Simulated assay, not measured.
Amino acid sequence: MAPDATVLYERRAPVARITMNRPEYRNAQNSAMTYALDRAFYRAADDDEVKVVVLAGAGEHFSAGHDIGTPHRDAHLPFERRAGLWWDHSDKAGAEQRYARESEVYLGMCRRWRELPKPVVASVQGACVAGGLMLAWVCDLIVASEDAFFADPVVRMGIPGVEYFAHPWVMPPRVAKEFLYTGDRMTARRAYEVGMVNRVVPRTELAVATAALAERVARMPRMGLALAKRAVNQAEDLQGLHAGLDSVFGLHHLAHAHNAETSADPLGGMDVRAMKDAAP
């Protein structure tokens, strides 16, 4: 992909590296980026030479989350839908527009990426916030730099959490509640302690450490990796992850609708500046 693309793709031997490439906006995810990520994951899935995928972010941050205010925000533009059967959102209004779009680009795509039958390793530095968490959480392994931090501050918007609500599965429930209730940042070290992150390394060693882990995993048989991944994913689903995602997605959209009725917009009047100002 072109160097100015929203997502970069490269393959080194058995490892494909997918890099979010909006560093000037802390890799905030507009729809162009989300659909480019989708194409990149398909490309890795279709390439028989690829055994492991690395997901990374260019620049100082992994991802600051969904794009809620850059000059290239494109939430109302139509894109070719591939993650679900909901109709085009761009010519709809109200809750129908939001629900159709987010069923596709947030819940639908994340759920499908989680099922990619090849291991995916997230390489996380700096901010991994809200929508950034969703991308890290669909990965099988997470390597974080010492300066990485994790947060889901959307309760400040009156919303119970991001659309891919994996919180009680990636960390203990009481830790998840504190994480949501305060909106505070969780350090990489704390994320490691609660089991959300596999390894923490110095920032200068992040790329090398991630590549080394990916290459170590790639030595295993492809079918064995696919089946092992499927086995663990099935166990998570038996513990309620799949149904939990669906149920909280409904609560997420109830919150959007409530905000739209009682405040300035579906985000409860919280723009990028207001969210920054509210952070401790």
Rank of each mutant, 00 (worst) to 15 (best):
G84C: 13
V175P: 04
N21Q: 09
P173I: 06
E115C: 06
L267E: 05
G158S: 07
M220Y: 05
A176N: 12
N30K: 11
D67E: 02
A274D: 13
A214K: 03
A44F: 11
D147R: 08
A13S: 14
C128F: 08
G240F: 07
R12P: 03
P119F: 01
A243F: 10
T19L: 02
E205F: 00
A44M: 04
R81N: 12
T34M: 13
R190N: 11
D67R: 00
L213F: 09
R203Q: 03
N30Y: 11
A214P: 11
L245G: 00
G240E: 00
L116Q: 03
G65K: 01
L238N: 06
E215C: 13
P78V: 07
P78E: 03
L251S: 07
A279W: 12
A274E: 11
R101D: 02
R11T: 09
V50F: 10
M275Y: 07
M20G: 01
H167T: 00
R22E: 13
N27F: 00
M109C: 10
D4Q: 14
N259E: 09
F62V: 01
C139F: 13
F179K: 06
Y9F: 15
Q29M: 13
P173C: 02
T19M: 04
P160G: 07
F150K: 05
V194L: 12
H167F: 04
A274G: 07
L107G: 03
H242L: 12
R112M: 00
R114N: 07
V155I: 10
A257I: 05
M20N: 02
A13Q: 15
G269M: 10
V50R: 00
L180Q: 02
A207R: 12
A136K: 04
R189P: 01
M1C: 06
A166V: 10
M134C: 12
V121M: 03
H253V: 05
V272P: 00
V124L: 02
P221C: 12
R199V: 12
M109A: 11
E205V: 04
A5E: 14
D237V: 10
M109R: 06
R189Y: 09
D74L: 02
D277V: 14
K276C: 09
